[in-house]
Design a protein around this nucleic acid. Structure first.
Length: 490
RNA sequence: GGCCCGUUGGUCAAGCGGUCUAAGACACCGCCCUUUCACGGCGGCUACAGGGGUUCGAAUCCCCUACGGGUCACCA
């Protein structure tokens, strides 16, 4: 029998999509695509305080940006709708009633203060702080009295006193938890909203989820969930807990380590395919030696068997390398269009650029595409292309213009630059050839002075790309002003 | 602290008892290419946490220790 794989990504909308969440989503997505199964996106918004529609939109937008699509869930609907937990409250209530009727769950009237005091007492005695189970055997009279006091009960799951829960994890192998170490936990809060541990089980079961692939932080929750599956007689999915993504100091990835949200990387100018490629390599390894993968390629290669157990440190260097890789491979027009917003933001380009400006940016991109690490960098390179004047980056640069062949070379350059021919990479190359022939100066002796006169710097993009991007007017002005500054009369 | 999980070079990682005097990638260093930078090519550097077992043989299996991480909420 070949069971149809059904996996899901179930974020809680309490903030933007985290890099770790994105990887979980990716793994689920890939597993579904690889097996011809379905991928579901469900929203776990039972934390009323912290959940917001904005976060939900942000998360969904980030997934879409990454190219991760889903077959069922919010935005697209499906046979198991609704896909937002706050819209499924009746379903959870039914399940809770069942548990109460079977004596597997009970009402607890303890206040948070009482619980806190209890935990305190336990830890002072050197024991593990947990729920004592004191509401386990309340009589109807007790309950009535509490109710009269105005107490709102929570619903607790009655955890067996003995026994153990064994999880056969797809990436970790067999993991055993003793029931003894699990206190009776809350499945419905006093406001009637189910807790995560409860709702997740009901939803996964009702939505026929076959594999739960999620972060390792959920591993210790899993025995509680398994207990609920068992109590309700529901079919359990296979579990796969993927290790966490760590920061440079090996602690859980957080703001201190830099950007943690997908939007942050998006706004820094990373390409979605680079982020995908990077993320998949964090915890999963290909069978062969190739490491550059498109989403489509990953859909054919991904497998849970090759997911690593150990946590991975987020390596920004490698992300940068990958991003540069994808930028180099991308069509120049695409990079140009992606670069435009950055230049507009930085004030180099008007909000509504005309065709001439777009073309200029296109030429600029052509010149720097091979050295860009991320799109945001166009902003730091922009001064090279915008503005009529430049500064010498160093005395060493300025000194280049003091070499004896410079006046002749620059004069020749200026003359050819303004003789009316169209400025294209080909003609620029021709110009340098002509200069060589006419002045008998070639190589470094002609390129370097022109470069410095044009940019004030000794390094930079190919001149045959740079000059067309500048245009003959700006180029001429820059050469004349820098030359003058260096004490040269042209 | 209890309970879980993990530990191969600076980083990501291959390896699933012999073919390991341990692959590949990023980073780093050197060389080459080149008008500069970058790209690209070539080469180099550096690792099985420690200690006990099991076995003819262990990076691979078991135990202990150390270290790292996760989790112990009316958050997910």
């Amino acid at each position: 029998m070949t069971e149809q794989v059904r996996v899901r990504f179930a974020p809680s909308p309490t903030g933007p999509l985290h890099i770790g969440g994105a990887r979980s989503a990716l793994f689920n997505y890939l597993l579904a695509r690889r097996t011809g199964g379905q991928f579901i996106v469900r929203i776990e918004d039972t934390d009323l305080e912290r959940s917001s529609r904005e976060s939900e939109e942000n998360i969904l937008d980030s997934l879409a940006w990454l190219g991760i699509t889903w077959d069922e869930g919010v935005r697209v609907g499906g046979p198991h709708a609704p896909y937002r937990q706050t819209e499924r409250l009746n379903t959870y209530r039914d399940a809770a009633d069942k548990l109460i009727a079977a004596g597997k769950a009970y009402r607890c009237y303890c206040s948070e203060e009482e619980l806190e005091a209890e935990r305190q007492a336990f830890s002072e005695k050197g024991e593990l702080p947990r729920y004592s189970g004191k509401c386990r055997c309340l009589t109807p009279d007790d309950e009535q009295r509490y109710q009269a006091e105005g107490r709102r009960p929570v619903l607790r799951f009655r955890v067996p006193d003995e026994g153990a829960v064994v999880i056969d994890d797809q990436v970790r192998g067999q993991v055993t938890f003793e029931c003894e170490g699990i206190g009776d936990f809350i499945i419905v809060k006093s406001d009637g909203i189910p807790t995560y541990n409860f709702a997740v089980v009901i939803d996964d079961a009702l939505m026929d989820i076959t594999h739960v692939v999620r972060g390792e932080e959920h591993l210790s929750n899993t025995p509680r969930q398994v207990l609920i599956y068992e109590a309700l007689g529901l079919k359990q999915p296979r579990f796969a807990h993927v290790s966490l993504i760590l920061g440079k100091d090996r602690s859980k990835m957080s703001k201190r380590h830099g950007s943690t949200s997908v939007v942050a990387y998006q706004s820094q100018g990373y390409l979605p395919e680079a982020l995908i490629n990077f993320l998949v390599l964090l915890g999963w390894s290909p069978a062969g030696e190739e490491e550059i993968f498109s989403l489509e390629a990953l859909c054919e290669q991904f497998s849970l068997e090759r997911v690593a157990k150990s946590p991975a440190v987020f390596d920004a260097d490698k992300l940068n390398w990958l991003n540069g890789m994808y930028i180099r491979q991308a069509a120049p027009e695409r990079i140009r269009d992606l670069a435009l917003p950055f230049l507009i933001e930085a004030g180099y380009v008007p909000a509504e650029p005309d065709e001439v400006m777009v073309q200029k940016v296109g030429l600029m991109v052509q010149a720097i595409q091979e050295k860009l690490v991320n799109l945001g960098e166009v902003t730091t390179m922009a001064p090279l292309f915008f503005g009529e004047t430049v500064q010498f980056e160093s005395e060493e640069a300025k000194a280049v213009l003091a070499e004896e062949q410079v006046p002749v070379v620059l004069q020749a350059f200026l003359q050819k630059l303004t003789d009316g021919r169209a400025l294209e990479p080909g003609t620029i190359k021709a110009i340098f050839k002509e200069i060589g022939k006419e002045t008998k100066h070639t190589g470094r002796k002609v390129f370097m002075p022109v470069r410095v006169a044009l940019t004030g710097q000794m390094h930079g993009p190919e001149l045959h790309f740079l000059i067309p991007a500048l245009g003959s007017h700006v180029a001429e002005v820059r050469v004349r002003t820098t030359a003058a500054e260096a004490g040269l009369a042209l």
